[in-house]
Simulated scan of single mutants.
Amino acid sequence: MPGTARYLTHPQVQVDPDRDVPRWTLNDTGRARVAALAAAPGLLSGTSRIISSAEVKAVETAEPLARALGLQLEIRPLMHENDRSATGFLPPPEFEAMADAFFARPDDSIRGWEPARAAQARILSEVEAVLAGHDTGDVLFVGHGGVGTLLYCALAQEAIDRRFDQGPGGGGNWFGFDILSRKAALGWQPMETLSD
Results as ranks from 00 to 15, higher is better:
L26H: 00
A66K: 00
P91Y: 10
V130N: 02
L26I: 03
Q189M: 12
D28W: 09
P92Q: 15
A86F: 08
D18C: 12
A156L: 05
Q166C: 12
H144L: 03
A159C: 12
G169W: 13
R162L: 14
L131P: 02
A101W: 09
L8M: 06
G176N: 06
A132M: 03
E192K: 09
L140W: 05
T136I: 13
S48Y: 06
P64R: 02
G146C: 05
E55H: 07
L26A: 08
P93E: 15
P115S: 14
V15D: 11
F95W: 12
G171T: 00
E158D: 08
R23V: 09
R6Y: 10
E96Y: 14
R84E: 11
S52D: 05
P22K: 01
G176C: 10
A32P: 02
I123G: 01
R19N: 12
T29M: 11
E114T: 02
E96R: 13
P91M: 11
Q189K: 04
G169P: 03
F141L: 03
F164A: 10
E81I: 05
G148I: 10
T149C: 15
A32V: 01
P190L: 12
D83Q: 04
H10F: 06
N82Y: 14
N27C: 10
R182S: 13
R76F: 12
I160P: 03
T149P: 02
T136W: 13
T61S: 07
